[in-house]
Design a protein around this nucleic acid. Structure first.
Lengths: 200, 200
DNA sequence: CTTGAAAGTTCTCCAAAAGTTCTCTATAGT
DNA sequence: ACTATAGAGAACTTTTGGAGAACTTTCAAG
């Protein structure tokens, strides 16, 4: 249960968001409820977070978000029945009974590219597949990335940093050869986070 | 969540593109929002790219492209930027600029199975992938199906009807052999309509 | 093909605003 | 007396917003 001041602070936050579209600062909350001390306000806001009425959306300013109970949104979900293997019956996956396509693929800074060519065929990325890329300038060795070479050629390859500072781009196709470039010639544009294919 | 200046910069870019049909330079953005330093502007534009609100369309000047915010009704969509191939720049797909995951995968009577094993590796379905299956009792020759053999073993295989009335189930893995069954022993449970994989 | 202005990138420095942590005080109810 | 609530404010860290120098890259004019 909330104290009177906690309730007023929560109401003030809700009002501010409804009016301005973004959460208030501590000082703005203070002006609304008549409390001058940032420290006091912080204590109450933290209490509301601990009690589950607020969440901190992101680090930094104006990061408060109301926890309004949402109706279960089931759009984008398909039932996840279980596993299938050669020679075994379908086996239920305990706990998981639903797979949300948006949870699976969506995220900030992502986009889709259609794959042309067979250079990644050995990791199951075929001609015509869609790949989900997360925009990024950096990547770890071993990740599959969209790399721009000399600012001209964009290509999907597995990335490897060599000890001598150069960069190796490995096509996952046993009939193709890896290429090695000086680091400054290769710019990472994104990292592979998903792949999908339609058979219809 | 964007800060105030990030939001103003994004609005200024959107406005400039709507007026002039091409993205603004850093200095033009600065004139619109009242910031004199190219360095500061670059920092903010880069931040918007990292957060996924912008993408750099191509190298060079005026290469910014908006990633239009999906409204609540368009959740499940990611921007479809173009094609990628070994040795070619990313090439825009005219007309297509958005791919909706739900259009791609959702449909009546569908469910998902997690793949265990390598029996379909030659068509790019790997161990751990998720496959989308449309429930069906019939399938055409050449389709990939979930088949139940003798009411006991469920398996994902390519289906082929033989002239003598029997059924051939073909694992798409060059190290495995197809099996042939009398028709009454094989019951179709569904047809493969999609496949997806997450690399996170 | 050269060249230079315009554009983009990387870096350092700075300051104000916001958030965090802490101590101190006061008052009402049990 | 003890506890829960309410409040002030100092001292600190982090985030945001801003300037500009020095550099590289792009692109069009000659």
């Amino acid at each position: 249960m909330l104290t009177e001041l906690e309730q007023r602070i929560l109401d003030a936050i809700r009002f501010h968001i409804s009016q301005q579209g973004r959460s208030p600062t501590l000082v703005e909350i203070g002006a609304a409820v008549g409390v001058a001390s940032k420290g006091t306000l912080h204590r109450y806001v933290q209490g509301l977070i601990d009690k589950g009425h607020l969440v901190r959306n992101h680090a930094g300013w104006r990061g408060l978000q109301l926890v309004e109970e949402e109706g279960a949104d089931e759009r984008g979900s398909l039932p996840l029945l279980g596993q299938i293997a050669a020679g075994l019956p379908i086996e239920a996956i305990p706990g998981h009974d639903k797979l949300n396509l948006m949870d699976f693929f969506m995220g900030p800074g992502r986009f889709i590219l259609k794959v042309v060519g067979d250079s990644m065929i050995d990791v199951g990325i075929l001609d015509g597949d869609m790949v989900v890329i997360r925009h990024a300038q950096q990547a770890y060795s071993g990740e599959i990335v969209v790399a721009l070479i000399d600012g001209e050629e964009a290509t999907l390859k597995r990335l490897k940093y060599l000890n001598d500072g150069r960069v190796k781009l490995i096509p996952e196709n046993s009939t193709m050869q890896p290429f090695v470039y000086a680091a400054h010639r290769v710019r990472i544009q994104g990292v592979l986070v998903g792949q999908m294919r339609s058979y219809q």
